[in-house]
Design a protein around this nucleic acid. Structure first.
Lengths: 260, 260
DNA sequence: CGACGATTTGACTCCACTCAACTTCCGTGG
DNA sequence: CCACGGAAGTTGAGTGGAGTCAAATCGTCG
């Protein structure tokens, strides 16, 4: 119905770059999900390491493009990656934000990437040949199990995101996002205080299924209610964690930790 | 913000029951996803079969409840299962609809089901002990690979759902849903013609992040435009497949087939 | 028939989108 | 040094689409 084109605000390279993008700790420090190196004997470990090569991307560079041949996937070591899908008319939905330790680019339809992958910050990732990895996994149950665990975790996160986008109001969504980012920050740095969002309003909007204006207004509301404080537009401090979690409907215990 | 309680229309047992709910073909007929019995030797196959026991549920019965101890998961043989999550105030989001061949109840946080599972139709499923299955998978790479494939597929579907719920307008969402259901119908029965939705307006609304009234209005619009026809409120015939896919933004080729 | 549940339809409201102006913040160059 | 331009973000006014509330219709079952 009424498929008018979305003239999308120009999504060119941002001049302002997050101050310490590459400062995000690497996965080995925090050991989240799919620890590919776990419990493999010497020989297998060697094989796995041979498959992977470390690569780097700058913010807003593309790791992989939806529809391209999915020859390899990536295990993030540093930085954040957005996984997204775009409609012909320009509407874009960020499906997940992946963090150090996560894998991206593993999903394919018919051998082609099912989603696109963008570097939200400067990114360092280990690139694995998909075919050879699968072959190795087929002979190493532990590796396969790790993969299944990672996929399970991602799927659970994805389900939570569905709830957020499908059922929460705009300010609730933004609160949810900020709450999850705060958790991520604590997990990565194990310290409270202000933190970077690493995403601009446009990216947050595409993640939450809102517009940049609505995101901005929601942030203002949360600021007015003294739930958060804004150091800069991209730097946030949570003033009332309980309230933020309540508004954002973040189940306490906070075991499911990523942003997805 | 303003978390007023949602008085939710009574979701009791529906008196009207889909005519041939148990008529949905079982997985062995169509071999979708995670074929657990594939490529196992005799001994392993025997072990696997010993883990599973076939169970039955009626429409609107609960397979598993979010938060309960996730002692076992289920491979659907007949029928449809909705996987959902509920907020304290009653808002509910159906995260995925699973079909014969799929597995449900595999996702857990800390050993407890991360989502709830409802029978959308009468359901026949094979129940597996989670712990013992994982142990078997740890020794059978093929099994683990099949599991990973199933999870990958589910994750890709989940991503597509995010796009639908996050970026499509109400009528587009309903069109998407109907298009996917039509595909499912063709896949299960390999024939065109009218088909059952197996879901009432309330369930469709909870799946698409809409209200029952909006779903109803969207269906009326599609009917008025001669894209679909309604035999009964629950029985649909697609009059213009191309148009339906166009409105619902269903990428052609239609390889990704499930509803999730 | 009468009651109830499911769905449809109507009237109205409100939240989020659209369009537009304005502010900030940079960086560049006169 | 300040002027200027561009990009990101904020704010405002107005619109529209989906939600809310309510009534009407339809179908089924007792």
């Amino acid at each position: 119905m009424d498929s008018k084109a979305y003239p999308r605000q120009p999504r060119g390279l941002a001049l302002t770059r997050p101050k310490q993008a590459t400062d995000l700790p690497c996965d080995h420090c925090i050991g989240r999900h799919l620890n590919l190196c776990q419990s493999l004997d010497e020989e297998r470990l060697q094989q796995l390491l041979e498959l992977g090569s470390i690569r780097h991307w700058q913010r807003h560079q593309i790791l992989f493009r939806a529809g391209d041949l999915a020859s390899s996937f990536f295990k993030i070591r540093k930085g954040l990656v957005s996984v997204f899908r775009t409609l012909d008319d320009g509407r874009r939905q960020i499906v997940a934000v992946r963090v150090p330790g996560d894998c991206v680019g593993y999903l394919d339809t018919d051998g082609h990437y099912a989603f696109g992958g963008d570097a939200l910050t400067d990114v360092e990732a280990c690139s694995f040949d998909r075919r050879r990895f699968d072959a190795l996994a087929a002979e190493n149950p532990d590796l396969a199990a790790a993969l299944a665990a990672a996929l399970s975790s991602a799927l659970a996160q994805s389900g939570e995101s569905m709830l957020v986008v499908g059922k929460l109001r705009s300010t609730e969504r933004v609160a949810h996002f900020l709450g999850k980012m705060a958790l991520l920050h604590r997990e990565l740095y194990a310290k409270p205080g202000p933190f970077q969002l690493y995403m601009n309003r446009s990216e947050i909007a595409d993640l939450l299924g809102l517009t940049i204006e609505t995101v901005s207004r929601s942030m203002t509301k949360l600021k007015e209610r003294a739930v958060i404080g804004l150091i800069e537009s991209n730097e946030v401090i949570v003033l009332d964690h309980a309230k933020l979690r309540e508004i954002g409907k973040i189940d306490d215990g906070g075991r499911t930790s990523a942003i997805g």
